[in-house]
Design a protein around this nucleic acid. Structure first.
Length: 436
DNA sequence: ATCGGCTCGCGCAA
DNA sequence: TGCGCGAAGCCGAT
């Protein structure tokens, strides 16, 4: 029995792994976990690779204790996985679910090259993506009731992973992580981060810290970039170091104010799973063709509006705009690998305002997001950027230049909502600490 | 400080 | 067919 691990890189609370173990026990066969390490993945840099590999080292260790063999296979899945399955006489393949196009293509390619049953388990969402809705949802308000209705059935406790009763007897060596790391072809010009530790254990600690220190202030202060009241869980959720279902269960158990729990659960469940819904049902999640019709129309009619500021990718990347708030957000992204959630919206909308076209804006925003964010290449990233630039899951607002009816965000608006100078000063301390 | 208008379309009720 | 309302706002009037 083989679990092909993709985006759910953990041993606890993983429905794909649990299902694989259940089937393996029933068939009285050993259980293997395989991870295909591709040399290049949508512009990922050493920053993301090293966070991921550290998590996988911990995964291998946990699996070993559970008598489950772990194989790290360097190469593209369609090239390495079919031969692996034949070599070890595997009878069933189980993968976790991922709506991204590249991952779906890999699965199709593998499927066409193997003769054994191949199942997919959504281990990432609480309500499996295709169960929650059979179509692309228009907005959160259409998605919310569908998920709410199904939560009692899906937001349940997990069984624990058992020590596997059937040992893998084939040839198996512990992974040589050092040579894997030195052999990485990833772009090493983006530095690793050290303020957030990778892996399942660190994810759990981050969750407990959030509940203890921040949850009770969440609804009021989560949108204040000058203070530290975000959960910081998104990198862990992205790599699957922690399960969203586990987070939801733990949040529900706390005695925090209902208003704060609800605000957090809305983001964790509804908004996050809506992102998967969008990417799963719309192949244009990473470009302007995915925008709703009203937004395409309004952006088109403002395509040739005069832009007061026009910046190249370089100027954006180096935080060289005229706007100190935008520059601070970009600097936070580059240094820390995680931009404050509220600033992500302002940041992307300004890229639309200061580039020659929505297409170019999408390209730049996605490039910078995927290059520097620890949680880049995630459905949440594509969906958030499409919300900001293309009105996705949003409604039309007062018409204005460049944006048309896309919701606008302004420097003055931010000034009324939080202390801009304090945020800029905080980013300056990051910059000094990092030696830039 | 607070309020209303801006503006689109989904989904449900009638 | 009508109606309520939505993922994070802006702006001008009061």
């Amino acid at each position: 029995m083989v679990y092909w691990m993709g985006r759910d890189q953990r041993t606890a609370d993983n429905w794909a792994l649990l299902h694989a173990q259940e089937l393996a026990v029933k068939k009285k066969v050993p259980l293997i976990v395989v991870f295909c390490l591709v040399p290049k993945f949508l512009g990922a840099t050493l920053r993301q690779y090293s966070f991921m590999l550290a998590g996988l080292i911990e995964t291998e260790e946990h699996l070993r204790k559970k008598h489950i063999a772990f194989f790290l296979l360097p190469g593209f899945p369609e090239n390495v996985l079919p031969a692996f399955l034949v070599r070890h006489k595997c009878s069933v393949l189980i993968a976790d679910f991922d709506p991204l196009k590249i991952r779906r293509r890999w699965k199709e390619a593998v499927d066409s090259r193997i003769a054994i049953p191949f199942y997919e388990v959504d281990a990432h969402n609480i309500v499996p993506c295709w169960v929650a809705s059979g179509k692309q949802e228009y907005a959160a308000y259409t998605f919310r009731p569908k998920v709410r209705r199904l939560l009692p059935q899906y937001l349940t406790e997990f069984p624990s992973l058992k020590r596997h009763p059937f040992l893998f007897q084939g040839k198996h060596y512990a992974t040589d992580w050092e040579s894997i790391k030195t052999g990485l072809a990833a772009d090493n010009s983006v530095s690793e981060i050290d303020w957030l530790l990778p892996g399942e254990k660190a994810a759990g600690k981050t969750l407990r810290d959030f509940i203890r220190r921040k949850l009770n202030f969440y609804s009021l202060r989560r949108n204040d970039p000058s203070s530290d009241f975000q959960s910081d869980l998104s990198p862990y959720l992205h790599f699957g170091h922690i399960s969203a279902q586990r987070v939801a269960l733990e949040i529900r158990k706390t005695k925090a104010n209902k208003i704060d729990r609800d605000a957090f659960l809305e983001e964790l469940i509804i908004r996050r799973e809506l992102s998967d819904n969008y990417c799963f049902y719309n192949d244009n999640y990473d470009n302007c063709d995915g925008f709703p019709e009203w937004a395409k129309k309004t952006l088109e009619s403002h395509r040739y509006d005069r832009r007061e500021y026009l910046y190249s990718l370089d100027r954006f990347e180096n935080s060289e705009t005229h706007d100190k708030l935008w520059n601070a957000a970009q600097t936070e992204l580059v240094i820390r690998g995680k931009m404050h959630g509220y600033m992500r919206m302002y940041w992307a909308k300004k890229i639309l305002e200061w580039t020659e076209s929505p297409e170019k804006a999408m390209e730049i925003a996605i490039y910078l997001n995927d290059r520097y964010e620890l949680d880049g290449r995630d459905p949440n990233g594509y969906t958030g950027i499409s919300w900001s630039i293309g009105g996705l899951h949003d409604r039309a607002w007062g018409e204005r230049t460049i944006f048309g009816k896309i919701r606008y965000m302004s420097y003055n608006g931010c000034r009324g909502k939080f202390d801009i100078d304090s945020y800029v000063a905080y980013v300056r301390t990051l910059k000094h600490a990092s030696g830039l």
